[in-house]
Design a protein around this nucleic acid. Structure first.
Lengths: 124, 124
DNA sequence: GCATTCTGCTAACTGGAGCAAGCAGAATGG
DNA sequence: CCATTCTGCTTGCTCCAGTTAGCAGAATGC
């Protein structure tokens, strides 16, 4: 338990990566091609068997359209000091609400969609 | 110019590390002990002969009392766009990109809609 | 003079990240 | 029923990040 360094970090990182990939409806090979890594290696990363380097994480983040920071935090190479913590992200709502380029109708549409997304999966 | 592939990044990172170490009046061995890396390896990093992993960079940052992000940026594994995110004008794109509750697909949907609204060709 | 203890560096090795090739099982459809 | 094309996984390899051991020179003191 204490001796397996991959279980601690790799598992959560791997699960997160797999979730994100599945959500994007991508197969292992599709994402691996997008990110420029080999598909067996991606498989091993998702199962927590290998620890990807920051370079690989960066490429995966690009392929998944996720911020690299979020993966770094999951991988334990960045502290969650600036991670959108605990309760979630009021940031999106606020950002939408304060964007001057949006019309009131557009604002409401975006907020409605966003609400439907985050309500659906209410998980801390 | 040079045949050294590490010169691009390694040199600037190495120079920066050596400068910081000298400014802190630390010898190679002192910093290597503080950071928990071997002193020959640190020497090679500073001379641009080796590319340290993010883990090593993190430890060196701690030993030098600088932010890990700054080293990541120098190492080219993080983009320099670490806006202090002072809440003057929250960026919708960024808020969406960093919201952990959204799936990749949801993220893309929201971003697509938002892009269509603001019709901004310039990519930040 | 010569030990000691610094400084940084070179040499030689090990472990594991990351790869290409190839495998078994589930869907397609001919 | 078999051929094709997906899906993910296993095997076996290469290469380099990072190690330990040891070297040459500079600065102390005896």
């Amino acid at each position: 338990m204490s001796k397996n360094p991959l279980n601690d970090l790799g598992e959560s990182l791997g699960e997160y990566l797999r979730d994100q990939r599945r959500s994007a409806r991508l197969s292992l090979r599709q994402l691996s091609e997008l990110a420029g890594v080999s598909n067996p290696y991606l498989s091993q990363i998702e199962r927590g068997l290998k620890r990807p380097s920051a370079e690989i994480l960066q490429q995966l983040a690009k392929g998944l359209e996720v911020s690299a920071e979020s993966l770094y935090v999951r991988a334990g190479i960045l502290d969650a000091e600036h991670a959108p913590s605990t309760d979630g992200a009021p940031d999106v709502r606020r950002a939408i609400a304060e964007d001057p380029r949006l019309t009131a109708r557009q604002r409401k549409t975006l907020l409605d969609i966003y609400e439907s997304y985050v309500e659906d999966d209410a998980r801390p």
